[in-house]
Design a protein around this nucleic acid. Structure first.
Lengths: 226, 226
DNA sequence: GTCCAAGCGGACGATTGCGTCCACTTAAGA
DNA sequence: TCTTAAGTGGACGCAATCGTCCGCTTGGAC
């Protein structure tokens, strides 16, 4: 049989293979952040210091690479949900969850794009954990509503609305955390039953016009002026 | 000089040229709606029933084509602002404005993408009308705040936040007007000083999971599964 | 009807990205 | 140390898109 007779590592990978895989992931995150998830595979390979073949062996499709690159972030999201459920005050948990996920989207460049790309996903493997996440979130919503803090007509699917909208925002204005914080604050506030009208974070410092100033924005190709 | 001695039409274009230009614009809207604004120029030309050269003559860059294709929508936006300023109740005007623009983004496929693509824009030609639009909107905001209906800490730049977020949402969920309406309602509500807590439009009928169901979503290339 | 410049279409070379194939290198068990 | 299969790298063939060039067609003035 010699199934894995000569292999030492527990994951059945040779040491160099594991090392290269890791290097590819690091490079992928960097390149995706810089040029968007549509960046050429060869660029990722070069950045990682490996050949294209190596990259393709570890990640046969761009999709697999994207998923691999942001698996950690996805896990952080999952953890945030668990923590939210465990929080003593369900509204607190809810709020924390939304803020954590949005912060993640805001900070890890390229992650938002990966996030929406992964959205229509129901891959066999993910379907299960996804279903669980949904169930947990619904529970959280019910509890928060029962506590009276979350408006009764909030629907779990509204989370998707929030996250996708937020993705769009941070993708369009990559360098600006202020806008993201502002949006999240507005939304959380209208989710809250009691309109305590807490102070919002400061508005975007820029005027409406002078926004990204065409600084060769990554992702989302920007054709040259006429 | 014979500057335009033999030309009849007032815009200095031959009849067939003008006809073709119009056909290209119609085709561009259709194709952009179907395949996103990154669709090949040749596709637009074929759809219009003209050669690529003709397309390139009328619109030297993809950017010019996009701008041409959605100029009408942009004008509708501008008109909405004018109407909003003219409305007797400034809050009513404000609300109407946001809803009109968002409805436009929701209905005219491809327009959202064009919208965010055009955003960092300050082209000589547009700078002027843009500046005026900004000034007008700021006036509208001030009036609405003075009337007590719009929260005092709303900042004109928040409009950009709303529109970009909304663009992101409708781009990610192209066929679903419900999500868009829901987002707009949430946001407008948190802009309003008096939290009348009006009923929201019904939530997305879908569960969190079964959203676009990978139906070969247009724009935003979707690499094949592993 | 005649003429000619504006307008037209499609072929074409260039560029870019994809994914595979194959000969070479190396980790690691014996 | 020796062996060998796992791992590696980059050249290569293929496909898509871009934007231009050039010879043909046609609107419209006279």
């Amino acid at each position: 049989m010699a199934e894995s007779s000569r292999i030492t590592a527990r994951d059945g990978m040779r040491a160099d293979a594991r090392r290269n895989r890791e290097r590819v992931l690091v490079a992928a995150r960097a390149v995706f952040a810089e040029h968007g998830i549509d960046a050429p595979m060869a660029t990722v390979a070069r950045r990682a210091g490996v050949g294209v073949a190596t990259l393709y062996r570890h990640f046969p499709t761009r999709d697999a690479l994207v998923r691999g690159a942001f698996a950690q972030q996805m896990e952080t999201c999952a953890r945030a949900l668990t923590e939210a459920l465990a929080a003593p005050d369900p509204w607190q948990g809810f709020q924390q969850l939304v803020e954590t996920v949005c912060a993640l989207q805001r900070e890890e460049r390229g992650f938002p794009a990966a996030f929406v790309a992964a959205f229509p996903e129901s891959t066999s493997e993910h379907a299960q954990s996804r279903q669980r996440a949904e169930r947990d979130f619904t529970t959280l919503v019910r509890r928060a509503q029962a506590s009276g803090a979350l408006r009764a007509d909030f629907h779990p699917s509204d989370l998707a609305v929030v996250l996708l909208a937020h993705c769009g925002l941070v993708t369009a204005l990559p360098d600006d955390g202020a806008a993201s914080r502002r949006l999240v604050a507005y939304l959380l506030q209208s989710f809250r039953t009691d309109p305590a009208n807490k102070a919002l974070p400061p508005p975007t410092a820029l005027t409406l016009r002078s926004l990204p100033t065409a600084t060769d924005s990554p992702q989302g190709q920007r054709p040259p002026r006429a």
